[in-house]
Amino acid sequence: MTAVLLYPFIIVAGLLQALGNSMNAQLRARLVNPWLTATVSFLPIVFVFTALFFLMPTPLPTLATLGQMPWYAPLGGIAGAVAVFGGLAFVDKVGAGPFNGLTITGNIITSLALDAFGLFGLPGSGFKLVPWIGGLLMVGGVVLIARTSGNEGGKDEGLAGKLLYPFILVAGALQALGVVWNAQLHHALVNPWLAATVSFLPVVFVFAMMLFVRPSPLPDRDGVAKVRWWMPLAGIAGAVAVFGGLLFVDKVGAGAFNGLLITANLLTSIALDHFGLLDMKTVKAGPERLGGAAVMVVGIVLISIF
């Protein structure tokens, strides 16, 4: 299967990731505690992938493949979860626009560097000007979209919010690294369902431990009653993107994979906001948002083709 034939699957994964982000935001609003929200969101993922592994337990890794597994490979899920938790914890402090803009910028730059230098087992393509121009266009498109997302209530986040910017950039970089590390884990464990289970299991453990350490605040009865049936499925929707990276990133490259994923994610997010779906606040898609989306599409075309 050629890399281009995988693009539709990656686009669908990006669409589901956007749905998962919006569902997580609604779940956090009801459950209040970010550690509880993350645990509830990620726990069904482990259950689903473990069940699939028991249904399809072959192939299994060999001692040779396990011996070649780098130490960082099982940390791919945790690396990717940093951005998810950052959204739960920081988006109300810096605003949805700046948060998404910073994480995506960190993700795109890191992805292009991974491809250029052939890091973490990826085939190195060397520095190519056109994909980097595409990356800059994508960042520009994100900025245009982020300008219209603004901050909650239209307030400036102040100095305290701006001090979080470096951490949010790092979260975006870790998101890109997590995709590649998961691909390495798949190579070592062979079975994709086993690899996904191993990737997500430490994430649930970490979030559950943090909930045990910091159990407050907790939701009240009214908040729990407002949790709709689809909200706890946020993690599963987002996990499709992680599973896609586990399978496809070494075939299409980190830049193309993450670029397609992000573009599909943001285009879906614009549609969700425009129509007010999944209980999201309605934000009409004006010229800046549509222009930013068009610029991003041009950017991902340059990354994917060249």
Rank of each mutant, 00 (worst) to 15 (best):
V4Y: 14
G161N: 14
E157W: 14
P219V: 06
G238A: 11
S269N: 01
L267F: 02
A81W: 06
A176W: 02
G118T: 04
P232I: 05
F99A: 09
T103I: 15
F205T: 10
L277R: 10
V170N: 09
G245T: 05
L246P: 02
L16E: 04
R221P: 00
D92A: 09
A294Y: 10
A173N: 03
P192H: 12
P217K: 08
A116D: 04
A83V: 11
A116K: 01
I11K: 02
I145G: 05
E288R: 03
G161H: 13
L31M: 03
T282A: 09
R221C: 05
Y165S: 14
L129G: 12
I145P: 03
D273N: 05
V179H: 03
W71D: 07
A29S: 11
L247R: 08
L63A: 15
S111T: 09
F85K: 08
I262G: 05
S125I: 14
L302N: 02
A146D: 01
F127G: 01
A73M: 06
T110G: 06
R289D: 09
A285E: 08
L15G: 08
I305S: 08
P57H: 10
A176I: 08
L266F: 10
V170L: 15
R214H: 14
F120P: 03
F99W: 10
G292S: 03
G235H: 08
G141Q: 02
F120Y: 14
I305L: 14
L66N: 11
Q184T: 00
V295N: 00
R30A: 11
V203F: 11
V40A: 11
